[in-house]
Amino acid sequence: MNRAQPYALGLFRIVVGLLFACHGAASLFGVLGGAMGGGSIPAGTWPGWYAALIQLVGGTLILLDLGTRLAAFVASGSMAYAYFKVHQPEALFPLQNGGEPSAVFCWVFLLLVFTGPGSLALDRLFARRSGAEPSADRTREQAPAVAA
């Protein structure tokens, strides 16, 4: 199971990034059901339009593993803001205030900040092509486990 961990993490990152980008695309462009089923959010509207832009750009970056840790950090913060400013004032718990997606995305992205992107990453492909050394977290993923 441990050998599959980087691949499972990579697949997890891809799926979560795609879902997050779809939320942004729905809000910005009115596709996939639009913003709450009612079309797109007007450009520049605070905070919805900016949140949707973070969702689209951040989700795409996370999906493709282009600066995953930084994109996940920004995405996590935006979801924490969404939860505490939009949902939490309505009721205390996420089940009561409709904030489950915001809370879950916040914690998922915070996890990616600390775990890194896993395998199946474009950053690794670019590092190989340029001849650069992979980052420290990628080297650690490839290193065999040492028994204590």
Rank of each mutant, 00 (worst) to 15 (best):
G39K: 11
W46A: 12
G99N: 04
V104C: 10
I62Q: 04
A148P: 11
P101Q: 05
L95Y: 05
W107L: 15
P42D: 06
A52Q: 04
S102T: 07
L32G: 14
P117H: 09
S119W: 08
G77Y: 02
S76H: 05
F126L: 15
G34F: 13
R69K: 10
A71K: 05
R69G: 02
L111C: 07
M1H: 14
A121P: 02
L112E: 06
F114Q: 07
R128C: 12
S78Y: 07
G10I: 10
G30W: 09
D123N: 13
Q5K: 13
G17K: 03
L56W: 05
A26F: 03
G38Y: 00
L112G: 05
Q88H: 15
A132G: 06
A80D: 01
I41P: 02
V74M: 06
L92G: 03
S130L: 08
L32D: 05
A8I: 15
I54Y: 00
L122H: 03
P117D: 07
M79I: 06
G37R: 06
Y50H: 12
Y50K: 01
F126K: 05
Q88M: 15
M1R: 12
L11G: 15
P144E: 13
R138N: 06
V15E: 03
G67R: 05
G24W: 01
F93T: 13
L110N: 01
C22W: 14
G33Q: 08
G38H: 14
A52R: 02
Q5H: 13
L11R: 04
P6W: 02
Y50N: 06
F20V: 14
P94T: 12
S27R: 09
G44V: 11
L9K: 07
G38C: 04
Y50E: 09
R140N: 02
